[in-house]
Nucleic acid binder design. Sequence first.
DNA 1: TCCGATTTGTTCGTATGTATG
DNA 2: GCATACATACGAACAAATCGG
Lengths: 362, 362
Amino acid sequence: MKTKYSIVRDSIKTKILNGTYQPNQRISSESELMKEFNVSRHTVRQAIGDLVTKGWLYRVQGSGTFCADMSRDLNKRNVTRTKNIAMITTYISEYIFPTIIRGAETQLSQHDFNVSLFSTNNDHEMEKEVLEKILSQDFDGVIVEPTKSALPNPNIGYYLNLERKNIPYLMIHAYYDELEPPNIIMDDEMGGFMQTEHLLELGHENIVGFFKTDDNQGIKRMKGFLNAHRKYGVVANPNNVIVYNTAEKKTTPVEQLKKLLSKSNSDKPTAIVCYHDELAVLLLEVLREYNLNVPEDISIIGYDDSYLASVSEVKLTTVKHPQIDMGYAAAKMILELIQNRKVEPIVFTPELVVRNSTRELK
Amino acid sequence: MKTKYSIVRDSIKTKILNGTYQPNQRISSESELMKEFNVSRHTVRQAIGDLVTKGWLYRVQGSGTFCADMSRDLNKRNVTRTKNIAMITTYISEYIFPTIIRGAETQLSQHDFNVSLFSTNNDHEMEKEVLEKILSQDFDGVIVEPTKSALPNPNIGYYLNLERKNIPYLMIHAYYDELEPPNIIMDDEMGGFMQTEHLLELGHENIVGFFKTDDNQGIKRMKGFLNAHRKYGVVANPNNVIVYNTAEKKTTPVEQLKKLLSKSNSDKPTAIVCYHDELAVLLLEVLREYNLNVPEDISIIGYDDSYLASVSEVKLTTVKHPQIDMGYAAAKMILELIQNRKVEPIVFTPELVVRNSTRELK
DNA sequence: TCCGATTTGTTCGTATGTATG
DNA sequence: GCATACATACGAACAAATCGG
């Protein structure tokens, strides 16, 4: 149950944290807030009072209420405090994320850092909440896997506030173009190229590609997919490039594949490039429904070399994601950044892992 | 400055400082103070509110306002500290652990707690290091999955020190008998019983059971295994109870199973009870080597209903582990403990999940 | 320097919701 | 179930500080 004053309080705090209110800037007056939220003065004062006692605001009688300057003093850093790293990922417990996290955790705990985990479920609103939480606390560094990196990000202000507070951060998997932060990614364009090249070299020409395009990984893998076609002189059928976003991930690819499989034999794809193993496993079920054997009737290739690739019924040909090594690298880089060292972006090169889900087309 | 609320405030504070109000003693109620000072309730609340934010008092709805115990470090109280929970598990990124962790994390982050993760790799030495780290920091609570709960624990002293420091902790999956801490477990004896009963009811009589016996879960599941035999009047062959410990988990069960499978046909087991799904998947590979089909030639049953059970080639019959719900429960319980409330141990009841790895013996 | 509009500070009254014992 | 105590919320009034004109 959300109380009115907490709504007002949180709304003001949001504006402080996302940079709408700059340090020492006057915020709306009490009467303005009364109108804005349609509440009594008492409620507004309660909300503001809360933030004043917590140090986010200060009041000057007759003048107004002002945003405090939270750029933290450096002397605070010197006292022996516990050292904390925040790690923001889209998911915590699924897929390859536990492994990435473990890589970072192992490394960081050796340097006496605690790791606190936050997940966004690939949702901007949750990313916002997480960032507010982190900004309200006292982390020494933040490792971020961006949420929907291919879309304009409404939370850029929070990242800028991290910079203002001198809290270093880096991004893995992708990064928001507006920020160009230190980052650790893999060469997804090459990865998409390798997936497709592998199939082209096996003689496939009617290849359908599924790409999640709300993050940059998907965009780049799609680019690699198209480049491979060009390089091999195979014209990519526009209908064979299926894009979807996170919300549709359980539905759109399945529906689209079914549509493609219902076509006459000559138009039917002979191979499928998947955004990642998770999708590949999902599509394997569709193929089973249609009584298509993999790889005899149709080839399929995944991405990430997750546990799904080797544990599923058909062992998937896939592209290797560094997983634990990426976690290591992220930990090392954030430690460097905390020591104010210069760092260079890291790009992992993908590798093809050939298993049983692809075969030569005769 | 002689505002009314400051008079009330200072009067209360005096009584705290001169010992009129002892720590944790209830002070006059708001209505009493209204009469005493002849002021409105709002004014009283303002005075009390001041002292609450400064840590001199605390309020309990429905009960009263109490004098805080300031014997602890004053500076600690005054600063709005970040709230931290440490979570110690044997593993972080493998198997069902990410899901349990996510359950706890979801719940705790809603209450503005950070979660720091530590793993012991089921090794006493690492458990010690982790506990030292936690004791030297400032956690508000600790959720522990014990390391080798069935063996004498060399780190009991650290847990006692947690108690001495008033840091509440609870244990999941099992607990050290010496401590009897608040705990959340599942009924592993019943679980082991259900696994075995399922096979017995399908007509199997030559059942081999594999149990990891350095933690209590394994011991109890084994007990359930034997009880089921007794109840169904089937004599359990002592050679059909294989125990192993964590260090041997990749080797001993495999070797022992191979030995059993090399026996003459009449002595060969017709069904396998596994300590958990992970082992079941490992043993499935052995069965494949021996060209035994599951469930046609031999039945196998797992435990935990992990992703492995539904993603492997043969969908495993298994016993459901609450996973995310256990995480939720652990989070809720630690929050209760932090508020100094009494808690009761929680025992989850196992459920059988029947899939395709077991069949009736004719 | 003073005025007046604005803004925060203090104080009262009242009503209803919710947790505790 | 009931009385008690704290929690939230509305309304109203006047005081005190600030700031531009």
